[in-house]
């Protein structure tokens, strides 16, 4: 059984069809990509998966359970995490505090714990800190943990987002254009990181990306959509030679499938 199974979902906003009868699946431990020209509806697919949008029809199965009626926080709790296309860090908080947000759904202390500080609460706080620091270490910015998130350079802020998503301890991680705005070295490290997340942590990955070089290097399976409609699916080579894909991209994208 696939880890994620999207079944014929459709979504429209006031007459404009954004996702059109789209189906695809992701196997456990895969690194998959969702690509398509600008405005093809990729981020909308992510928003459907994470519960921010409700598809008008179809079904989304994650680990065999439907996500159609679940709120975003329930979906995250259920093991799917995401990053945002435009950075959405908690700007006035420190890097560590940002990452600690990911641990919220894995911990339980409430009002009583806050007021009385019983042993369980202290242990939990230490645990939150430990895991968060490990996540920061994993993406390589543990040194910056006490700095305000907004003071970091752009590339490092991206890494805070990844660490934050990792801290939710997901089974499936959705990256929304993780390479946007990164320089050549940073992209290289991103590719390594994606591999490490899958190989060392055993997390399945789905990414949306415009950088075709990167997509072709990391993805094992690629789904291409245009106007919310699936036009091709397969391995990197297959996709690169698919006439439909070439047509969809031709003249629209600078770095089309090279």
């Amino acid at each position: 059984m696939a880890l994620l199974d999207i079944k014929k979902i459709s979504l429209s906003f006031g007459g404009l069809t954004v996702i059109d009868n789209l189906s695809f699946g992701i196997e456990e431990h895969a690194i998959a990509s969702l690509i398509g020209p600008n405005g093809a509806g990729k981020t909308s697919v992510f928003n459907c998966l994470t519960g921010f949008y409700r598809p008008d029809s179809g079904d989304i199965l994650f680990q065999g359970h439907s996500l159609m009626k679940k709120n975003p926080h329930k979906i995250t709790q259920g093991g799917m995490a995401r990053t945002f296309q435009n950075l959405r860090l908690f700007k006035n908080m420190t890097v560590l505090e940002n990452v600690m947000s990911g641990m919220h759904c894995r911990t339980t202390a409430g009002v009583w714990g806050a007021l009385v500080h019983p042993g369980s609460q202290k242990r939990e706080e230490r645990h939150i800190r430990d895991v968060s620091e490990k996540c920061l270490d994993f993406v390589g910015i543990l040194d910056a943990k006490d700095r305000p998130a907004s003071s970091l350079p752009y590339g490092d802020q991206r890494r805070v987002e990844w660490a934050r998503a990792l801290a939710t301890q997901p089974r499936l991680l959705l990256f929304d254009e993780p390479a946007a705005g990164l320089n050549y070295d940073e992209k290289d490290r991103l590719i390594q990181l994606i591999g490490r997340i899958r190989n060392e942590l055993g997390i399945t990955i789905l990414l949306i990306e415009h950088d075709m070089g990167l997509v072709m290097r990391v993805s094992e399976r690629i789904t291409v959509i245009d106007y919310g409609h699936k036009i091709a699916e397969g391995g990197a080579e297959e996709i690169q030679n698919n006439p439909k894909v070439i047509e969809a991209y031709l003249g629209k994208e600078e770095n089309g499938p090279a």
């Binding site: 926080h73 995250t76 995490a81 860090l89 947000s101 990911g102 919220h104 759904c105 939710t168």
Partner: peptide, 12 residues
């Protein structure tokens, strides 16, 4: 600071 991001981090 950011309701959507918080929600995406699993906060109700």
């Amino acid at each position: 600071e950011d309701e959507d991001a918080a929600e995406a981090m699993g906060i109700n």
